[in-house]
Simulated scan of single mutants.
Amino acid sequence: MFSKKIVVISPWFGSFAGGAELLARGMSRELNKRGVETIVFTTCSRSPYDSWWQDHYEPGTYDVQGIQTLRFATEKIREPYDAVIRKIRHGKQLSTRDESDFFDYGINSPDLVAAVGSYLTDNYELIALPYFHGVTHSVINAYPRKVSLIPCFHDEAQFYWSATQRLLQNAKHIFFNSQEEKRLTIKQYGLRVGRRIVESVVTGVGVELPANGAQPEAAEVAGSYFIYAGRKERGKNVHLLCEWFLEYARNFKRGTKLVFIGGGDHTLVPGDDRFVDLGFVSEARKLNLIKHSKGVINLSENESFSIVIMEGWLCGVPSVVSAACPVTTNH
Rank of each mutant, 00 (worst) to 15 (best):
S3Q: 15
S3H: 10
K4A: 11
I6G: 00
V8Q: 13
I9V: 14
F13L: 10
F13Y: 10
A17K: 08
R25P: 00
S28N: 08
N32W: 07
K33W: 00
R34D: 10
T38N: 13
C44R: 09
S45M: 08
S45G: 15
P48M: 13
Y49Q: 04
D50F: 06
S51H: 05
E58K: 14
V64Q: 02
V64L: 09
T69V: 14
F72E: 04
F72K: 01
E75H: 05
Y81I: 06
D82N: 14
A83Y: 03
V84W: 00
V84N: 06
I85C: 12
I88E: 06
G91C: 10
G91E: 05
Q93D: 13
Q93Y: 02
T96N: 09
R97Y: 05
F102P: 05
G106I: 03
G106R: 02
G106P: 01
I107G: 02
I107Q: 06
N108E: 07
N108P: 00
N108F: 05
S109I: 13
V113R: 02
A115K: 14
V116D: 04
V116M: 08
G117C: 02
S118W: 09
L120C: 02
T121Y: 07
T121V: 03
D122V: 02
D122K: 12
Y124D: 09
I127P: 01
P130I: 01
Y131Q: 12
H133I: 04
H133T: 06
T136R: 08
V139K: 05
N141T: 14
N141W: 07
N141S: 14
N141V: 13
A142I: 00
A142M: 04
Y143N: 12
Y143L: 12
P144W: 12
K146T: 08
I150Q: 01
P151D: 12
F153A: 06
E156M: 12
A157H: 10
Q158E: 07
S162C: 11
A163P: 01
T164P: 01
Q165L: 10
K172S: 11
K172E: 15
N177S: 15
E181D: 01
K182G: 09
Q188V: 14
L191A: 14
V201E: 15
V202R: 04
L209W: 03
A211E: 15
N212W: 13
A214K: 11
E217L: 10
Y225Q: 00
K232M: 13
K236Y: 01
V238R: 05
L241A: 01
C242D: 03
E243P: 00
E243N: 13
F245E: 04
L246R: 04
E247N: 11
Y248Q: 11
N251Q: 13
F252Y: 11
L258E: 03
V259A: 10
G262Y: 02
G263I: 00
L268G: 05
V269L: 09
V269A: 08
P270L: 09
L278K: 07
L278C: 12
L278D: 02
G279F: 04
E283L: 07
A284S: 15
K286C: 05
K286M: 10
N288V: 03
L289R: 00
L289N: 04
K291H: 15
K291W: 08
K291I: 09
H292F: 14
V296K: 02
S306R: 06
V321N: 04
A324M: 14
C325A: 04
C325G: 00
P326I: 09
P326F: 06
V327S: 00
T329Y: 00
T329K: 10
